[in-house]
């Protein structure tokens, strides 16, 4: 193999053969080395949170990744390829302007669609949290109605202490319900000011790092309605909720707790897939 090995043959075939072999080996080793170096660098620069979100996003089922404009009918079937970062999305402005020109009638806006309470003041995140701006400039974060019905009665919350930093799309707090635990991602960057609980109507009070109107990735009420509908459909594909299929079509009211209707389903899996924690 090497010139110093006994019986090494200095002949063209041998040299070409070994040349190719060593080229392959070198490429392989270089690759592994590059990957290792990059990984160390990534670990050091603490981009790990973003990275984890990107990985989580990649792992989401295709149904969970549909583009917001797909739901509003402007880009049918489109999947998000930008990790839900509408702020940096190349196609967002185009679709947004389209949407503004042909604003659909908000005829369902008075009460929540499908029995989900939708608050006009709130911004909804794809991880089933909402964000509401308070008068003092702080925001409160809570779980939306859909999440509440997914979680069932008496979930417990492990909330971050005051002073913690939240990163958009990265886990903010954990909910334990039954045997499953699900990480809820933060709708926005910010700093935790106070932890609440379900009785106060919100879970975290934060000071956001961005002005909310610029948080393009969040849904406003009209969009949230369509999104809830899409989510219900998605849920129904995962597990047939009795009555829901029928009620949706005629705008009926879904049950209070999805769980109780189908206790046999894999709720841990459903929770993860619906709340972006796979």
């Amino acid at each position: 193999m090497f010139p110093f090995v006994y019986d090494f043959r200095w002949e063209a075939t041998s040299l070409i053969f070994l040349g190719v072999f060593f080229a392959v080996i070198t490429t392989l080793m270089m690759m592994v080395a590059t990957v290792t170096v990059r990984s160390v660098k990534d670990l050091r620069t603490r981009k790990i949170g973003t990275l984890r979100w990107h990985e989580t996003f990649e792992d989401l089922p295709a149904g969970a990744r549909s583009c917001r404009f797909a739901m509003s009918g402007f880009a049918p079937g489109r999947s998000c390829d930008n990790f839900f970062e509408c702020g940096t999305c190349a196609v967002y402005p185009r679709f947004r302007s389209l949407e503004e020109r042909h604003r659909p009638e908000d005829h369902e806006s008075r009460s929540g669609h499908g029995g989900f309470g939708i608050d006009e003041k709130r911004y909804y995140h794809r991880g089933h949290t909402w964000l509401q701006e308070e008068e003092d400039g702080t925001c409160v974060i809570g779980l939306d109605d859909f999440a509440a019905r997914l979680l069932g009665p008496n979930p417990t919350y492990q909330l971050p202490p005051a002073g913690s930093t939240l990163k958009q799309h990265q886990p903010a707090f954990t909910i334990q319900t039954g045997e499953s635990s699900v990480r809820v991602v933060s709708p926005i960057d910010g700093e935790v000011l106070e932890a609440g609980d379900s009785t106060r109507g919100w879970l975290l009070r934060i000071r956001p790092s961005t002005q909310l109107p610029h948080a393009r990735h969040l849904f406003r009420a009209g969009e949230a309605r369509r999104w809830f509908q899409a989510e219900l459909e998605r849920l129904n594909r995962l597990v047939e909720i009795p009555g829901v299929g029928a009620t949706l079509a005629d705008g009926g009211t879904p049950v209070d707790s999805f769980r109780e209707t189908r206790p046999d389903a894999n709720w841990d899996g459903i929770l993860g897939v619906m709340m972006l924690d796979v």
Partner: peptide
């Protein structure tokens, strides 16, 4: 490394992430 438990470890996660990027080269080899 995409296993639910393994990817919890940051080091494995980043390694996997970076490895995934070079898969086309591996495929070519």
């Amino acid at each position: 490394l995409k296993n639910r438990k393994l990817k919890e470890r940051p080091s494995l996660l980043v390694f996997q992430h970076n490895l995934h990027k070079v898969i086309p080269v591996l495929a070519a080899i």
